[in-house]
């Protein structure tokens, strides 16, 4: 355990780092003229070729300063759930769409992987038989599935859900099967001498014993799902936070892109924190 004062010091350091980050950001986004004086003639020519004349620098696609970002972000966050048309939906609405897809795809993965993992954990032969398939399927990047998914499933919405499903299922399956296979023989012996039915044995012994490992797998799986959905939506979606990022980039609204990126990070953190709490509640000391 960390001492209380150490925690406070750590927090102070975080605040300092944030300030430093904001200052650096502010400095790098100072108006162009201040830089011109120090740059060589050659550099100025290059900037000209790139279209970065002082005149264009005033345009809106300039990288926003922290202040500009704050103003734009506030504008967006004022009505996060506005839904005027398909091209104009609020960031909250888009985030909700992504979370909904994750809920369905990831939920399906849990429903399939946990029972299958419980089975594999108890049947070494089945485990050995399926292992080559799992080992080959597991390292496939979720996006590599996209063309196959699009061809077979066609519907973009379902494709997104499929991609979540297929990438989050492996860590859950492997961890569940590992957790069950590694169960102490003594505990199963106790179950046998108490003549527990298979349902009671599952509920009273196997699940609680393997729960810490299962939840770890679920936590890893959710992390991967969150990474995958943003990428998948950038590729095919017509909604979702990943689509939002891509759409705002096409609109050259960098403030909204930054806002969305931050929101993706914060959401991922909240999801992970929830699972960390779940993990603590099922863990036990031997």
């Amino acid at each position: 355990m960390m001492r209380r004062t150490d925690k406070l010091k750590g927090f102070a350091l975080s605040v300092l780092l944030t300030l430093a980050l904001l200052l650096t950001w502010q400095y790098l986004t100072l108006p162009f003229e201040t830089h011109v004086g120090s740059s060589s003639a050659q550099n100025a020519e290059y900037e000209m070729l790139m279209g970065h004349t002082p005149a264009t620098q005033q345009a809106s696609h300039n990288f926003p300063s922290p202040r500009q970002f704050a103003v734009d972000a506030w504008q967006e966050l004022k009505s996060p759930f506005h839904n005027t048309n398909a091209n104009n939906r609020g960031i909250g609405w888009q985030l909700g769409a992504s979370l909904y897809r994750v809920l369905i795809g990831y939920g399906l993965a849990v429903i399939v992987a946990v029972p299958l993992g419980l089975l594999l954990g108890q049947l070494p032969i089945l485990r050995a038989g399926l292992n080559p398939f799992i080992q080959i399927l597991r390292p496939i990047s979720p996006l590599a599935w996209m063309p196959i998914a699009l061809y077979t499933i066609k519907d973009a919405e379902e494709c997104g859900i499929f991609v979540i499903f297929i990438c989050s299922i492996w860590p859950i399956l492997l961890n569940t099967s590992f957790g069950v296979s590694r169960l102490r023989k003594e505990w199963l012996d106790v179950a046998r001498t108490l003549e527990l039915s298979w349902a009671r044995r599952l509920w009273l012994i196997i699940l609680p014993a393997a729960a810490p490992t299962i939840v770890t797998g679920m936590r890893v799986g959710l992390g991967i799902a969150w990474l995958a959905i943003v990428a998948a939506e950038m590729l095919v979606g017509s909604s979702g936070i990943g689509y939002f990022v891509w759409n705002q980039w096409n609109n050259l609204s960098l403030s909204n892109v930054i806002l969305a990126v931050l929101l993706i990070g914060v959401t991922g953190m909240i999801l992970d924190t929830a699972f960390a709490a779940l993990q603590r509640s099922v863990s036990y000391a031997e």
Binding site: R184, E186, W187, D189, V190, L204, I205, Y284, A285, E286
Partner: peptide
């Protein structure tokens, strides 16, 4: 009834 050498209690 069995008393196991390593107590075999459920730690959870």
């Amino acid at each position: 009834g069995v008393v196991f050498q390593g107590h075999a209690l459920m730690p959870w």
